[in-house]
Write a protein that binds this DNA or RNA. Structure first.
Length: 271
DNA sequence: CTATGGACCTGAATGC
DNA sequence: TGCATTCAGGTCCATA
């Protein structure tokens, strides 16, 4: 489900409520992707100082310097409840605080909750250390992005998904950004001209920013921590539109597989 | 080093 | 109706 916009929308929907809240208990259900590196009981009595985001990870700063990392995987979503209903079959983590309960719902359990000693610890850096720059931040400058592309021989879509150049661009938004930039997803990154790569740079920013504005994509079951659905998918130009007319030229949108994942594009508009 | 494919897990949609 | 197959928003890991 969640790419950067969904994670950011989720963060914004509960960060203000949980910041300053005292942890009353932390309960795990079925195992998630990585084990907790410390017993969750060690969180009790501590305060959640802030909620940040890095790529597709949510970072909960604990008042003693520890960092609780949450990743939503493919099917995860978070809700923040004032009064928390009983846990359902796919609710696998509850952080009960003085201001409400943060609950992770994740049917496929590709998500993760990892308690680390701090952002610079090995445990945290193992997950965060190789992430590329934030696409909506100042670090995403055109010149370094173009230089990064020139170094990669892989198809540009795979380079975006790898997240080593720039984070947060997942399967939906990679297709959308490449469509907006007029670049064929199979084109080798190092063979993209500087005008095209400048368009891609701008497209990544604008696609992600507009998805955040629209509250993310609601394909299957995404909603924010307050339960709001997103609306980006209504404005998707190519993703999930195989066979439907390209919004620009009217020819049918095509679907192909790249690295076992669906890619949507317009063969006429993208070269 | 890179590129590829499998692994993790469940549920919904599709096909026969 | 029932059962098997395919697909889904992510990422790590083993293998060539």
């Amino acid at each position: 489900m969640p790419e950067l916009p969904e994670v950011e929308v989720t963060r914004r929907s509960f960060a203000g409520q949980i910041a300053g809240a005292r942890i009353l208990s932390a309960n795990l259900g079925k195992p998630l992707r990585w084990p907790l590196s410390a017993p969750p009981a060690t969180l009790i009595g501590h305060v959640v100082a802030a909620v940040r985001r890095r790529g597709k990870y949510l970072l909960l700063d604990i008042d003693d310097g520890r960092l609780l990392l949450i990743h939503l995987g493919m099917s995860g979503s978070l809700r923040f409840f004032q009064t928390c209903p009983p846990a359902g079959k796919h609710d696998h983590f509850d952080l009960v605080t003085s201001r409400g309960t943060l609950r992770l719902h994740d049917p496929r359990r590709f998500g993760a909750v990892v308690l680390t000693p701090g952002e610079q610890s090995d445990a945290a850096q193992r997950l965060l250390g190789r992430l590329g720059v934030e696409p909506l931040g100042d670090g995403f400058d055109l010149v370094s992005f173009q230089a990064g592309l020139r170094q990669r021989n892989a198809p540009v879509k795979q380079v975006l998904l790898a997240g080593e150049l720039v984070v947060g661009v997942g399967n939906i938004y990679a297709s959308e950004a490449l469509f907006q930039a007029g670049i064929r997803p199979t084109r080798k990154a190092c063979r993209i001209g500087s005008e095209s790569s400048a368009r891609l740079h701008a497209a990544i920013r604008s696609v992600l920013a507009s998805a955040v504005e629209l509250g993310g994509s609601t394909l299957k079951d995404f909603s924010s921590a307050s339960g709001e659905a997103g609306h980006f998918q209504l404005s998707a130009c190519v993703y999930g539109r195989e066979g439907l007319p390209c919004v620009r030229c009217g020819r049918p949108v095509r679907k192909m597989l790249q690295g076992q994942r669906s890619t949507y594009f317009c063969a006429a508009c993208q070269r």
